[in-house]
Structures are given as structure tokens and as C-alpha cells.
Simulated assay, not measured.
Amino acid sequence: MSTSRADAPDTPVVPRPAATVLLVRDDPDPPAGRTPLQVFLQRRVAGMAFAGGMTVFPGGGVSSSDVIDPARWRGPDPAWWGQRLETTPELGGSLVCAAVRETFEECGVLLAGPDGGDPAALPEARALRTDLVERRSTFGELLDAHDLVLRADLLRGWARWITPPANPKRYDTAFLVARVPDGQRADDGTTEAVEARWWSPAHALASYEEREIELMAPTLRTLQEIAEHDTADDVFAAAEHRTISPVIPRVRREGRSVAVVLPGDPDWETAADHLTPKGPDE
């Protein structure tokens, strides 16, 4: 991933909190020689202001309405999530709410259900998703209207990535893992994507190497990490033991462009944490 130096702000933009979800499942009939693990990916519309044309996990920015009545919350509480994601209890809760809301808005998977019951697929889901996207209702109102509870216990923390200071649009993004509940299916119903489907991590990585798809650095690194596992259960078990600390990629100048450098890359120690503004002729 690179950004033009001309687009880099003189003063770094404050990152906007966001959440993204690695939806995983096991392929019931994997091709010979391929592990069953699959992950859901979307290719974003090319003209979008952020990550246009990129293949990404479902997710988006935290909304001011991403606050849930404690009575509608089941599983580890916001304080627990704040500690897990190295942030405040308030933001920890909002990140989980945003993750669940965005997953429902973008691919129709609802990580919520009746209290004491399994996650539920709602018959009027398409209309409810549209209401959320167009901000005619909030996710909390949806839970109230259908007497549902948010199932924070169905999520696991994976990572936290912060866009480098050089970028004009920045996000502080929590990466969470969830399985698709029984009886539900992920779809391509979002207007933000031109394609959405299940991939094996190895196939996605091979497609990236062949330049058939484009991946941002955090997506690439995350796919590399989950590709080390064979099943959805293996990914969940790995998530339990991961240390989550914010990762801010560094940058390296390549002429008039800026290349992203990740921890563990050969140039990590010599790359800059930020860009020093240059004159127009430099």
C-alpha cells in the first residue's frame, strides 16, 4: 500500500475508531489438498474515498450511536473489551457494537439473538439493514424492537491497526473474529462492494501475488496469519492467546511515493514513523 507524498498532511490526522470482522467458517467440501478454513472478503467500489478497489474484511467506522444498553449485552462486557483492545471501556464497547452492526449492514450476518437463544436471522433483514445504513434507526433500536441481545461472546479479538500518520484518512481499527452462526449466510448485499464471497486464505494470498486483487497492509498481514491455521476452531483458539497492541505501519520514501513497512520487514528499523513535510520542488 502506498500514498502519494503530495497527499500527505503536514499535521497528522487524528485516527477515527473503526472495527472490522474476520468472518470465518469451514468449507464443508474443500478442494483436495486445501484446508477447510474460509474467510469472507469484499472488493470495495473503486471510487470510494478510502480503500477504493481494495479487497477487505467487512467493517467500518464507529458511530456515535454505537452504544448499547447493558440489558441488551451478553458476553464479556465493555470494560473487558477495553482491556483486551488496549483502549477505554467506553470505546471497547463501541468497537464491539460497531463490529456487529457493520457485519449486519454489509453482509447480513447478525451476531445477536433472543436472550438465552441462538443468533437469529431476521425475516425483514434487508429492510432493517437499509434503515441502519441510511441512519433511519440505530442498532440499539433494532435490538429493542426485536427483543434481541448483542452476543459479544461470539467475537474474539485479533489485532489493532492504526493508519500511518502520512495518510490523509486515518483509522484506528480493531480486528475481531467471528463465525457465521448456523442458519445464516453472508451475502453481497452492500452497495459498498462490487464483489463479496468466501475465500481460502491461501487462495486470497495467491490472488494478491498474481495481482488479481489488491490488499491493504493490515489485510495482507492478517490473511498471512490466519493462513497458518486449518479450521475456524483453530483461528478462534489462536485468538484467545494473541497479545493485542496497536500497530502503526512505518513509511519509506520511494521517489515521490511512500511505501508502507510492517513490523518484521527488513526495512522496519530504518523506516520513519512519520513524514517530514517537503517543499514542492523536493
Rank of each mutant, 00 (worst) to 15 (best):
R5S: 04
A8N: 01
D10I: 13
P12M: 07
P17A: 05
L23C: 09
L23H: 04
L23Q: 05
V24D: 00
R25E: 10
R25M: 06
D26S: 05
D27V: 05
P30Y: 04
P31Y: 11
A32R: 15
A32D: 15
R34E: 12
P36R: 08
V39K: 02
V39Q: 02
L41W: 01
Q42D: 15
R43V: 15
R44Y: 14
P58A: 10
G61C: 08
V62F: 09
D69Y: 11
A71H: 11
R72C: 13
W73S: 04
G75N: 10
D77M: 07
P78D: 09
R84N: 04
E86S: 15
T87L: 06
P89L: 11
P89S: 08
A98G: 02
A98L: 04
A98E: 02
A99Y: 00
V100T: 06
E105Y: 01
E106R: 05
C107Q: 06
G108W: 01
A112K: 03
G117C: 07
A121D: 07
L122C: 06
R126S: 04
T138C: 05
F139G: 04
L143F: 02
D144A: 11
A145I: 01
H146T: 08
D147C: 11
L150T: 06
A159Y: 00
I162M: 07
T163F: 03
T163P: 01
T163K: 01
P165C: 10
A174G: 12
V177W: 00
A178S: 15
R179M: 09
V180P: 00
V180T: 15
D187F: 03
D187G: 14
G189K: 04
T191G: 09
V194W: 00
E195D: 15
W199G: 03
S200I: 01
P201K: 07
A204I: 08
E209T: 15
E210Q: 15
E214W: 09
P218G: 11
Q224L: 12
A227Y: 02
A227F: 04
H229D: 01
H229G: 01
D234Y: 03
V235R: 00
V235Y: 01
E240H: 13
H241K: 14
R242T: 15
V247L: 11
I248T: 15
I248W: 05
P249S: 13
R250W: 12
R250F: 11
R252G: 01
R253Y: 10
R253Q: 07
E254D: 15
E254C: 10
G255D: 08
G255H: 05
V258F: 05
L262D: 06
P263I: 10
D265Q: 13
D267C: 09
W268D: 11
W268M: 13
D273Q: 10
T276F: 03
P277S: 09
E282C: 13
